[in-house]
Design a protein around this nucleic acid. Structure first.
Lengths: 214, 214
DNA sequence: AAAAGATTGTGAATCAGATAACAAAAGCGG
DNA sequence: CCGCTTTTGTTATCTGATTCACAATCTTTT
């Protein structure tokens, strides 16, 4: 299986497709064409068809795609039919918000444990998740954990990531505004809100300049 | 000025460069080569030089870049020497976390006002920011506002964005897991944590499969 | 069951971005 | 102040992603 290599850009769109399909199925829509779907997810219809084509023929000519079927395919492909356990490191404002949110709504990812440096928080729960002491992280066994969400202050990010690695974690969703220096077998994704906001401001100002120039 | 068009990919790296430089300057580093800088921000040194070249000659051959000078250039380019006012819509868990954080640390962006649908929150403050009633959004004058941060539930995102537009906002940082349908003159950036996490899980599982295949 | 219409899947073309290669220019060490 | 070293800026090349164009094929209608 897994015929050709799936391009990175394609893989990054799959979760978006998946979530949109969940919504469509819930709303009782049974079939959809790539162009109609494209309007919803704001991706060109050709791109959508090409994305799906890496996994074989998922649609039917003259008909489109069966939403239920497509959704189930994506659920498997994204490993959403098995529970992914995740830990969260750093129970500050953002960490707390994520714990309360806990990704529980539509998907099969659960934050099973949180770590914080502050001993007074230890043992307490945020949402369903119990807080452990940061010092125990490196020596805990987290080999059954898929990924760690890093919501610590910038100066603690590198060290926290290393401790998580030591406990067996090999994937990170890094919310701290630092690039982590980690071995290549560890996979890191960045969510950097300050960068996003500054980029937004840059584009807004530049769009204005360009239209002025016209 | 603004000789050639700056590629999107370049523009999106500028905030990262800027923040790294702030740190370097603070730590007393006065000069840096593209290759040393590249290791810090984890971007290829050629890419860095090329990025800077769109803005003219910022470095000196055989020497590198003056950190202070470069930082100041980026500060201007990113409009960080003037205050950018931002509003936040949706004071839930995530919205509250962002208000408390308030982007204040190193940059010149401030959340000056928040909106929420819940009247019992109105008039209260989170951090420095006062909460207003959602119903007033469309009729308020927010033309001096650079962007709106959207942290509302998915089903309210579209309507909230439209109300913000009506009040004069033309840039959005959208944290809700929905693609907004807005006119093209409005600029939207998405921060989608569920997608990020699912993409991470996909890549982790697939990296494993590939290494198994070797 | 034939004709008309819809829509996929894909090879070819284009576009954007990243990397490589290197000449030109500046720094630096004796 | 001369030659060696460093490092930029940039052109050329490569890679990956998107878009185009259209044949193949299924659906729907009559």
């Amino acid at each position: 299986m897994a015929s050709q290599k799936v391009p990175q850009a394609t893989a990054e769109r799959l979760p978006l497709y998946y979530r949109s399909l969940q919504r469509l199925v819930t709303n009782g829509k049974t079939r959809i064409s790539s162009s109609e779907f494209g309007k919803i997810v704001q991706v060109d219809s050709t791109t959508i068809r090409k994305d799906f084509s890496y996994f074989g023929a998922l649609g039917r000519k003259g008909y489109g795609y069966n939403t239920q079927h497509l959704m189930e395919f994506l659920r498997k492909t994204l490993y959403q039919d098995e529970l992914s356990k995740v830990i969260l490191i750093g129970v500050g404002h953002l960490g707390t918000a994520l714990l309360n949110h806990n990704f529980q709504k539509n998907n099969n990812t659960r934050i099973v444990k949180a770590y914080d440096i502050n001993p007074s928080k230890v043992g307490k729960k945020v949402g369903e998740t119990e807080i452990h002491l940061m010092d125990d992280l490196a020596t805990d066994d987290n080999h059954d954990i898929t990924a760690a969400i890093l919501t610590v202050p910038p100066d603690q990010a590198q060290s926290a990531a290393e401790q998580a690695m030591a406990s067996g974690v090999h994937g990170f969703l890094n919310f701290s505004p630092v690039r982590l220096a980690l071995p290549p077998e560890v996979y890191v994704r960045h969510v950097d809100m300050t960068v996003e906001l500054q980029a937004l401001i840059y584009f807004l100002n530049h769009a204005m300049e360009e239209s002025r120039a016209e």
